[in-house]
Amino acid sequence: MRAFDAMVKGERYWINDPELVEIRFKTRDLVDKINQLGPRDELERQELLRQLCGRVGEDVHVEKPIHIDYGCNISFGDHVFINFDWTVLDCCEVKIGSHVFIGPHVSFYTAHHPLDKQERAKHIGFAEPITVEDNVWIGGNCVILPGVTLKEGCVIGAGSVVTKDVPAGMLALGAPCRVIRKATDTKE
């Protein structure tokens, strides 16, 4: 089995597999082009984003700089806004729904490394997907960890480290992130 196939399935794989290294180089080439564009080069940015990612819906705006591992494992719905300095380790699928807002300095990490030091020294990795459903808002400086699903309409407070799924329509925050209450403008 190809290392790429094992990686996207969440199985253990050798991180330095030549095919994976080449994909990462090609991705970084595209990311560098995006990051060098001027603020008014929106059409070119959209075209490069479509080349980089698996799927890009309508009205997807991603501020630069961005930092992405593979790109092909990322999909966007429609009407998505991502603020400055987004980092994505997309060794597995990263699915972002529609009407999603992501604040500045947010990181998505699908990648894991073995806890055992001998295995880790062999450059073995594995991954779990991240899913952001529709109408989610993620505040600035958040970290979304492997295997997390942010359910429809939830809000993640700034500075949170999200280690587990967040239910639909809930406000969650903290490190580790915990559900506080319903995501409404009035406390219930």
Rank of each mutant, 00 (worst) to 15 (best):
P65C: 06
V56A: 05
A3E: 15
C53F: 14
K26P: 03
I130D: 07
I15S: 14
I130G: 09
V166N: 01
C142G: 13
C92I: 02
R40V: 04
C53H: 02
G174A: 13
P104D: 08
V60W: 00
T131M: 07
N141A: 15
E188F: 02
E63T: 02
F126W: 13
D32W: 05
D59Y: 06
I96L: 04
P129A: 10
V60I: 09
I156M: 10
H79K: 14
K151C: 15
C91Q: 01
Y70C: 06
D85P: 00
H61N: 12
I68E: 00
A3H: 11
H123S: 15
D59I: 00
V179S: 10
N135G: 02
D5Y: 05
P167R: 09
V143S: 15
I23H: 02
D90R: 04
I74E: 03
I34M: 13
V56W: 04
L49A: 01
F76G: 03
N141M: 14
V94Y: 04
C177N: 11
N141E: 14
E93I: 05
I23Q: 04
G71C: 04
D90Y: 04
I15Q: 06
K122E: 15
F81L: 13
L145R: 13
G140H: 12
V179K: 09
G71T: 03
A111C: 14
V56H: 00
A3L: 02
G153S: 07
E152K: 15
C177T: 10
W14Y: 13
R40L: 14
V155K: 10
K64D: 00
V56F: 01
I130Y: 06
C53D: 08
K9G: 07
C154T: 08
A172N: 14
E119A: 15
S75W: 00
N135A: 01
V60G: 08
V56L: 04
H123G: 00
L20E: 07
E47F: 03
K64L: 05
E44C: 04
V148F: 11
Y70A: 05
I144N: 09
R28T: 02
V161C: 14
C177P: 08
I74Q: 05
I180K: 15
E133G: 01
D116M: 06
E44V: 12
M7I: 07
H61F: 14
I15F: 10
G140V: 07
D59H: 13
V106E: 08
N16S: 07
A3T: 05
Q36S: 15
K26D: 06
F84D: 11
E119V: 01
V31P: 02
I15H: 11
H112Q: 14
A172S: 13
N35G: 05
T131P: 06
R45C: 07
E58G: 04
I180F: 09
Q46H: 13
G169W: 11
K95E: 12
C154V: 08
F76C: 03
T149P: 10
L52N: 12
R45N: 06
F126K: 03
E128V: 03
L48Y: 07
E63W: 02
D90S: 08
L52K: 07
S160H: 06
I156Y: 09
R12P: 03
K33I: 01
N135V: 00
V31F: 01
H123C: 10
A183H: 12
N73K: 06
N35S: 08
F81W: 12
E44G: 02
L20M: 11
V94T: 13
I180T: 05
V80W: 03
W137Q: 04
G157H: 05
E47W: 00
I130N: 08
V21W: 05
T184L: 15
I74M: 05
V106I: 12
